[in-house]
């Protein structure tokens, strides 16, 4: 019994220590952003890398999720004669929950892994030390540009994910399943409001920060040569994915206080 308690206690402490480390990296990055010139050329390069190249993944994910979600809703709701609400329910679910979470998980897999691998390789090949020896802080050069790129890209990616999910849901509902368009569109416009879009964008922004800081932390802490470089991306993806799901739960309640559901 005591053994189990000790283990749980240790795990809790390890998680707290990890959060502390990531928070410290975040603080250093924001201090750097506010106190210094940001390297915009690098930011642009990472926007291409992080943002532009993630679009396909995020759009496909959103589109298929929207499509199956509206089909399943239709199978259930048409029996109750409520088929016209399929579009609004899908849109609300996508904006408030699925869009940001799915986009977050996909970007964690694609971008988080590559950031951790890239910085991790630089760490074990002494390139990070070489930067420092030239008098360049690794946070300024490696972390801040990626953070800035992520802050710009992630809300846009979430917006794309949500937009395409609603479009594909509409297509499935109206063209494939033959739901009457007038009632469907009226519900969609009536039940989806600006707050839902805010929620999607804010969640996306927060998840983006989680991904980039966890990935940079894993990269900068990489040790033990090739084995370490192999482990860093895996850890980055697993940890940031779990963190996204947990933070999503907290954000759902917090955002409902700020933007109450009508």
């Amino acid at each position: 019994m005591q053994n189990i308690l000790t283990k749980i206690g240790r795990a809790a402490l390890a998680i707290l220590a990890y959060i502390g480390e990531v928070a410290q990296l975040a603080m250093e990055s924001f201090l750097s952003i506010f106190s210094m010139h940001v390297r915009w050329r690098l930011v642009m390069r990472h926007i291409v890398e992080i943002g532009a190249r993630s679009q396909i993944v995020v759009i496909v994910t959103g589109a298929f999720t929207g499509a199956v979600f509206s089909a399943q809703l239709y199978f259930q709701l048409q029996r109750l004669g409520m088929a016209s609400t399929v579009g609004s329910v899908t849109a609300v679910a996508m904006f408030r929950e699925l869009g940001p979470a799915l986009a977050g998980l996909m970007v964690a897999g694609r971008v988080g892994a590559s950031i951790a691998a890239e910085i991790g390789t630089m760490k074990v090949t002494e390139q990070v030390d070489a930067l420092r020896s030239i008098g360049v802080h690794p946070v300024d050069y490696l972390v801040v540009p990626r953070v800035a790129a992520m802050m710009i890209s992630m809300p846009l990616l979430v917006a794309e994910c949500c937009a395409f999910s609603v479009l594909s849901a509409n297509y499935v509902a109206l063209k494939v399943l033959g739901i009457a368009e007038a009632g469907y569109m009226r519900n969609l416009i009536f039940y989806v409001d600006l707050f839902d879009i805010y929620k999607a964008l804010i969640k996306g922004f927060v998840f983006g920060l989680i991904i980039v800081f966890v990935a940079c932390r894993e990269g900068l802490r990489t040790e033990n040569g090739a084995a370490g470089v192999g482990r860093a991306p895996t850890e980055a993806v697993v940890i940031s994915s779990l963190a996204i799901l947990a933070v999503n739960f907290i954000l759902t309640f917090a955002l409902n206080i700020i933007f109450p559901a009508s």
Partner: peptide, 20 residues
């Protein structure tokens, strides 16, 4: 605070540590 020291002293790394 180490930047000024590092600007005075150059280091050649054993692995060369070129930015690849």
């Amino acid at each position: 605070e180490l930047t000024s020291v590092r600007r005075k002293i150059g280091m050649l790394f054993q692995s060369a540590a070129l930015f690849d």
